[in-house]
């Protein structure tokens, strides 16, 4: 999986498949379709929330995060976003539209 991930529009399929347990330092999500449980930090939780709002590409996510944070993203953040999207894809939390 390389940079081609950046050109794929992903969404959270079918809706309503996630169950959440929210704790002070992390969110735990159970996906009814896969039966898998994942722990997300606040950053990852925010990115998944953006996908839950509607289909998006890598650039859309970056744009929205810049809006939320009020400044430009540095290279480290961009790499982290890329990694997170890649991770969500392999966990099946998001799927290509």
């Amino acid at each position: 999986m390389s940079d081609q991930i950046k050109n794929i529009t992903f969404n959270v399929p079918d809706g309503n498949n996630f169950l959440w347990s929210e704790w002070e330092d992390a969110s735990v999500v159970y996906d009814k379709r896969s039966g898998h449980t994942q722990v997300l930090n606040e950053f990852a939780r925010e990115i998944l929330a953006l996908f839950e709002d509607g289909p998006k590409k890598f650039d859309d996510i970056c744009f929205e995060l810049e809006e939320i944070m009020g400044n430009d993203l540095d290279d480290e953040s961009l790499a982290l976003i890329f990694q997170t999207i890649n991770g969500f894809d392999s966990m099946g939390l998001i799927e290509p539209v």
């Binding site: 002070e24 330092d25 992390a26 735990v28 722990v39």
Partner: peptide, 20 residues
């Protein structure tokens, strides 16, 4: 943290994945 305790319970469970 509670999130840590949560995960330790999940990992210790032999049938968590089956029950869902």
């Amino acid at each position: 943290t509670k999130a840590m305790a949560f995960f330790r319970l999940v990992l210790s469970s032999a049938n968590y994945g089956d029950i869902g």
